[in-house]
Design a protein around this nucleic acid. Structure first.
Lengths: 200, 200, 200, 200
DNA sequence: TATGAATGAGCCTTCATTCAT
DNA sequence: TATGAATGAAGGCTCATTCAT
């Protein structure tokens, strides 16, 4: 099973991430990042050109890890749309439970990106959304899903996964894989999954 | 049918809301709020004691409008949990499509509230969540919903409604009531609604 | 007789001028300007948008005062090139002795101007130089000046006037008008002034 | 004839000079000097103790070259004040056309020297000025120059030479020796040179 | 009510310089 | 010699807020 936890950034970038996640980009101070990183403010600028640069690095790192994993899974899972949706939701859930801060920042601070950077990040996010869209649409086409508005459903599914970052606590009652399981079940229901036997 | 649109704040508070929604609390400048409101920065302080005060006012206004409507609907709809969930999701969807900015700010900028204010706002948010929780739980108890993890489902349902603010555009293809309709269907599926005939 | 002294800037601009004159633009601190002006650093930004803006204001003010005076004198003095050169040198000398700091900054800190601002200032400087050029050239044409390289001579003359700022001290042995007198004599010699009787 | 051009500094000092000449001392960054020199910023500090040290080195080098040449010429030219003034102006003109950047920095950045260093540099500059003063004064005493204010004239003459750095371009219409020739003529006029035959 | 002027605190960033390697 | 990493101090500028008018 996928383990995203190991990919969390350390050092200066980890410090930036932690601060961005708690206070938001504009509420975060370079000095506080530096302090958390055990560096002087000036020292940070050896590694990153600007505060904005740190935000970009945080986002790219997170989104790239997620995208790589997601596309690799989709490639290996075969062509069945149901299997594909299951894998996608699983990976999304694991990422959002194990890399909560990065996911939160990536979905929350896009508005704080300068235009040039924003474009690239939004493109990455869209690419992920389109994987879910395709799985649901294919499932509807194949008859695996009964669904009158597949485009909305896949958006709702992705939203549900993303929303994990709003409530999930690592020391809460559910492990990442338990969360993933429940989201998979929920996503299939949302998609209109109708196996021979009836309801899920 | 409920019409939330009329309740949007005007004047200084509307200006604050507009800025908060686009730039976030910390990314918003008192001077920009003032400019948008057609006032001097100093002039704003005759209406609100501080920038924080404006945030609190924005949030209270939005959450109160929503809560009042929600509780009034719940009270009038009767005791059937299915009806109740339908009404709740409907109201949530209408609010999030018609008062997108307020909803966005209320769910996004809680972290920017000073502790004293935060408590009160979180309590209001929780109260709303609990309405959804209760509806799903009651439905499971009554056998209307087949659901192994009702608490998670009601959270997913609320998340879906809240996520509206991330993608809904007033000039997009769907009207608020169309969005509401689709969300109601999706919520019932998520809750595990199982009418006699089988699937929804 | 022209009195430039009254035109010296006061207040914030005077403070900026004083600091620029002593430490140069890049060696000057906004905080020091503010202190000298009896304001906070932030307060300065009510009157000028930036440090660069203060430099531009200083230069424009000085060069405009000088240009206005110069062109008005030239207009009133008649067409005789000798008279014209005399008036020009006189005005230049008076300006450079009475507004030494402004002249110094205007001729020294052009390199510190951002390109857009630089163009305008250089144009003003050139316009002044061209007045001297014309006077000498006309004098050569009329036979009043015997001179094989008028263009260089007029440049030398202007340089001499500008150089005043490098050595003139208000509390030194020479008054502004004495300086002006000596410069006029020197300029006529440089120009190759040859009255009937011979040397000047 | 004197050739100053060969004496221009290379390497790190040349880089410092180039930057100082364009941006001024305070506008120049150690890192930019290093970059131009093909070194790291830290590497520069193996050659010079500080940025100030580089400024001092630049100035001393230039002023020493000029002084040495000037005094050697004066020594060889004999006692005639006219010849002496001619040689002085010639050397000054050649130096300022061939070592423009150094001359510019030496006359412009004295204010950026720390007090201890400033004294020594000013002394060197004064020594040069005094050579010109003496030549004019001696000429007046000998009757070669007719001049009512010799001290001012010698200052004007030196100023004219120094001002070369403000307008001279190596790829312009005049060669260094042509500039020197015109300055010599001008200086003699300024000094009040009156050969038997009349005008110069 | 409204505002122009003002400010202390703090922002992001850059500076000249040092030092372990 | 050379440098990448680091830093204390300071830089220009903006912030939310106040107050006399």
């Amino acid at each position: 099973m996928v383990d995203f936890a190991a990919g969390e950034p350390n050092g200066a970038l980890g410090a930036a991430l932690a601060e961005f996640a708690v206070h938001g980009y504009h509420g975060t101070t370079v000095r506080r990042i530096a302090k958390r990183a055990g560096l002087s403010a000036a020292g940070l600028y050896h590694h990153y050109q600007s505060k904005q640069d740190m935000l970009v690095a945080v986002m790219n790192r997170g989104l790239d890890d997620l995208t790589v994993q997601l596309e690799s899974e989709v490639e290996h899972v075969g062509t069945d749309p149901v299997d594909r949706l299951v894998r996608i939701v699983e990976v999304l859930a694991l990422f959002h439970t194990q890399r909560t801060k990065e996911a939160f920042v990536a979905w929350t601070e896009v508005r704080s990106l300068e235009p040039a950077n924003r474009g690239r990040v939004v493109a990455k996010r869209d690419r992920i959304q389109r994987l879910a869209d395709a799985a649901v649409e294919d499932g509807v086409a194949s008859g695996a899903f009964l669904n009158e508005f597949p485009r909305d459903s896949s958006r709702f599914i992705a939203s549900m996964c993303v929303s994990i970052v709003q409530w999930y606590k690592p020391d809460g009652p559910l492990s990442p894989s338990e969360v993933a399981e429940r989201l998979v079940v929920s996503a299939l229901r949302l998609a209109g999954y109708a196996p021979d036997s009836g309801a899920v």
